[in-house]
Simulated scan of single mutants.
Amino acid sequence: MEELILISAVVACPSHPDTPLVEDYHAGDMICPECGLVVGDRVIDVGSEWRTFSNEKNAKDASRVGAAENTLLEGGDLSTMIAVGPGDRALDDNGRSIYKNRRQVSSSDRALLNAFREISQMAERLNLPHMIVERANTLFKQVHEGKSLKGRSNDAIASACLYIACRQEGVPRTFKEICAVSKISKKEIGRVFKLILKNLETNVELITTGDFMSRFCSNLGLHQSVQKAATFIAKKAVDLDLVSGRSPISVAAAAIYMASQASDDKKSAKDIGDIAGVAEVTIRQSYKQMYPKAHTLFPEDFKFVTPIEQLPPP
């Protein structure tokens, strides 16, 4: 590209020196658009190289280089087998031999490709970054090569790998969120998740209430001040050991419920449960444990619309 810029800077049309030249990459010429004069040649073609192996006259040419090599696949050497058809079908209209380009894919690579495609589709529905997809693909390949989860469906393993990848990359998703974009039940994903951790001897970071707070509040359309208060309430409740035995997700949901009820943007436990993937009764149970200490849970600068004394009873 630097060479092209240099050429266009020193070459100009004698009749129209101020007119920008048009670069014809296919012909390798630089042309004056005013008079059509070719004022430069041998321009480097920076476009794709194309080559066809197809014998259909009306078929479009396919790219010669193809997609990027996937290092997770065994057949990543792009090896090709040329096969000739039998009988008259081996000759075209002019009597020349017809060759067909066939790529052999092993059953192992086929299983990996299907799993990688499933992981990519789930990640796309969840708007997850590509680095999480790569980590999930690597985890799936490790499980696949270890052959320690025989009898489990590849879709279940792919879903569990995506869940683990999210946890390891610091952007955890709930089992319900993974289940919503998967074909597998929440219970089965949980089982496979535990098996993968056991067999790969890997671990995941413990999830906290703060991992979900921003996303839950954003999906509920809550103001930043409510999110800040809910984050403070959840952390304080954990520090005071008020919600022992409760999952971080249910504690986060209960904290959002308490903060929203004290603000002018009140959300019901059902609305919060639908977003957080937690049952309404579970939120109320966590809220019940936090309610007696509500006056110590709110940040000092929180502006109450509903006083603590008037918060809904558990």
Rank of each mutant, 00 (worst) to 15 (best):
V46Y: 12
K293M: 13
S120G: 09
L73A: 02
V204R: 01
I132V: 15
S214W: 10
S63N: 13
V251F: 06
K266L: 02
D265L: 05
L242D: 09
K270A: 13
H295N: 02
G40W: 05
D45C: 10
L139F: 11
A262P: 07
I7S: 12
D301T: 09
Y257V: 03
R42I: 05
K235I: 09
A59P: 05
V105S: 00
R64Y: 14
A90L: 02
S159M: 04
K288W: 01
D61V: 12
G221I: 14
K228C: 01
V46H: 11
G210N: 15
Q261E: 15
A59T: 10
A67Y: 04
S54C: 13
E309F: 01
S244V: 11
K60I: 06
K183R: 09
S185Q: 06
K176I: 15
N114V: 03
V171Q: 08
F232M: 02
I189W: 07
L128V: 06
I308A: 02
N219Y: 06
P86H: 07
D211Q: 03
A156Q: 01
K176Y: 08
K293C: 08
R152G: 00
S182E: 06
G146N: 11
C161E: 04
A158I: 02
T174V: 12
N154W: 00
I119C: 05
Y99F: 15
V305L: 04
S148G: 12
S214F: 12
T209L: 03
T71Y: 00
A12E: 04
K100F: 08
K266E: 15
F298K: 09
G36R: 02
I31K: 01
